[in-house]
Design a binder for these strands. Sequence first.
DNA 1: TCTTGCTCCTCTAGCCGCTAGAGCATGTAG
DNA 2: CTACATGCTCTAGCGGCTAGAGGAGCAAGA
Lengths: 146, 146
Amino acid sequence: MEREKAPETAVPIGDAARLSGVKVPTIRYYEQIGLLPAPARTEGNRRLYAGTDLRRLAFIRHARELGFDVDAIRTLLSLQDRPEQSCASADAIARARLAEVRQRMAKLKALEDELTRMIDECACGRVAECRVIETLAEPHRHGALA
Amino acid sequence: MEREKAPETAVPIGDAARLSGVKVPTIRYYEQIGLLPAPARTEGNRRLYAGTDLRRLAFIRHARELGFDVDAIRTLLSLQDRPEQSCASADAIARARLAEVRQRMAKLKALEDELTRMIDECACGRVAECRVIETLAEPHRHGALA
DNA sequence: TCTTGCTCCTCTAGCCGCTAGAGCATGTAG
DNA sequence: CTACATGCTCTAGCGGCTAGAGGAGCAAGA
């Protein structure tokens, strides 16, 4: 019984890319930096991705979408690999990330306000009266924070 | 000698950095990429920044803070240099940036929600039950773009 | 069989906006 | 005069990919 060719067994990198939503060169890059283990190869030296690889790839992609950096993902993956442990680290990483996200949002809100003001106040005549340019040219305090 | 630092003359790069809030190497970098004109030099080959340079630097810094990329700043600066022209381009650049900012905010909001959910639902026991890890591992649709 | 045309391989270099460091010259205070 | 800060140029590195060269493998059609 040759059941070795089940449909979901292993796929080449192009399919892995389509299935996971991670681009082909990016998959190879993840392998290079050790985020994804080197998969099996065919006789012709092509990468063959199994289900576990694809799941890991999806995990990475999702985490990247949420803005986790590679280092954080490395930690999360290592946690995932040892399900006995406490998930306090994962929680901490997520919390740190949430704090970052909130900070970034606050900043963007300030930006939005300023941009809106710039645009609204711009009579859109000559540059000489342009609020957009003018606002940017205004001296800004910077002493403490960058 | 109490040679007064005449305020309206020209300052070396370190002072320019302190006054503008742009770091020394960054100032040199801006010169290198042609964002800031090469300033006058002393006999000893040191850069001397005059008021116009400092104002330009402040402009650049403010624009960078608002997230404009170097190309956009180049355009804004060239507009600033010709105050007769219509400021429609500046307006367009600012509007494009505003759209970007809003998009980014929406994304971050979604992120915040997901992170909040992840954290809230995590009982913080073993990894096996950790929502943080679990959520990241969930298959995500991506085919049509999220 | 050959050929077309896709996928895949490795390798190197480039992107942005800086930042860090080496190795040397200059300026200034004590 | 000596220390030490500040300046100079130059090169290389960061993260997280992305692009391209130059070649090999492989399935299907003529």
